[in-house]
Amino acid sequence: MATRPPPDPWLDHRLTAAARGGDAEAFEQLYTRYRDWVVSLALRYTRNRDDALDVLQETFLYFLRKLPEFRPRAELTTFLYPVVRNLALTRRRKRRPELAGEEILIEAPAPEPVDHDHSRRELAAVLRGLAAGQHEVLLLRFVDGLALEEIAAALAIPLGTVKSRLHHALRTLREDARTREYFDRDTGKTRAE
């Protein structure tokens, strides 16, 4: 698994400032810190190994180009996420030009089709029925562990919209017979961190 690296804004800020001043080792540390998360995210959207690796490469080269004027105001994830997402969806559109707009977003973050666990298969089916925006916020929150404010910054949408989408996604999972079991069994609700 490749969840995002533990948040450490001070470290990111220090490394970014050093890299901006020409410190290649600082850039390498940033790359090592975020590489696995970026490639995992790229794979989620492209569903293709080679495309995911290309997206990883393009993301960090874009970051390198942006470094001179880059001033981190939040977690680096909020800068990287939209870059990875846009690059990945562009690649996917090239591969499947018949998909457009929302359609590509709905399809892109889908899980691997084969899972031998019954409840996970059911969960995957319910997720496929979620609106693209709700699905995306749900994954950013519980798979990538982004805070609500970070999600708002990464997607450039209001915090209220993030909360609304997350609320509706969870309500769908809670009310759907195929995934209700998660909520019935687990009375103590746990926040994903």
């Binding site: 696995d36 995992s40 995957a124 798979v143 995934t179 746990t190």
Partner: peptide, 29 residues
Amino acid sequence: NEGFPEPELTAPARLVEDLRRLHDRTIPV
């Protein structure tokens, strides 16, 4: 849209675990 209490925005631990199993995949670089 900002009136959702925090508990409504949390998920059961098992659901979080399964979401990660489904989506959190990586490849060697």
